[in-house]
């Protein structure tokens, strides 16, 4: 019973500390790309890499600290559907960019 309770708590749990850490990390990860872009600190490509990396990191921070994907019990269906969605997402976005950049017949 006690075991079951902690399990239930864990599945969408988290503590104040984990929410606070997530919040602070998100703020830092928002400020870094802002500073880089608004002060023109890097070359175009470097800026692009930095801001996209910060966005992906912040996505992971929210996933771990706010959505508690780590606490899920097996079988990890939430994680599996997430991975499926990310694969489809990357295919659509990268595929569209690729086909419109390198395969224009009228351009």
């Amino acid at each position: 019973m006690a075991n079951h309770d902690t399990g239930a708590h864990k599945s969408h749990g988290g503590s104040f500390k984990s929410y606070l850490i997530g919040f602070l990390l998100s703020i830092v990860l928002t400020i870094i790309p802002l500073v880089v872009v608004l002060n023109d600190m890097m070359s175009r490509n470097a800026t692009l890499i930095v801001i996209l990396a910060m966005a992906v990191l912040q996505f992971l921070v929210q996933l771990f600290f706010f959505m508690h994907i780590r606490d899920e019990e097996k079988p990890r269906y939430n994680l599996m559907t997430l991975i499926l969605a990310v694969v489809i997402l990357l295919t659509i976005v990268a595929g569209s960019i690729w086909i419109m950049t390198y395969n224009m017949t009228a351009g």
């Binding site: 928002t30 790309p33 802002l34 872009v37 608004l38 023109d40 175009r44 800026t47 692009l48 801001i51 996209l52 910060m54 966005a55 912040q58 996505f59 929210q62 996933l63 706010f66 959505m67």
Partner: peptide, 23 residues
């Protein structure tokens, strides 16, 4: 969950639309 999801989407809107727009 829905609200966290919307924040995640906004992070990418902020990055791809606005930051990439003004860089």
């Amino acid at each position: 969950l829905y609200w966290h999801f919307l924040d995640v989407v906004w992070i990418f809107v902020f990055t791809v639309v606005y930051l990439m727009g003004v860089m």
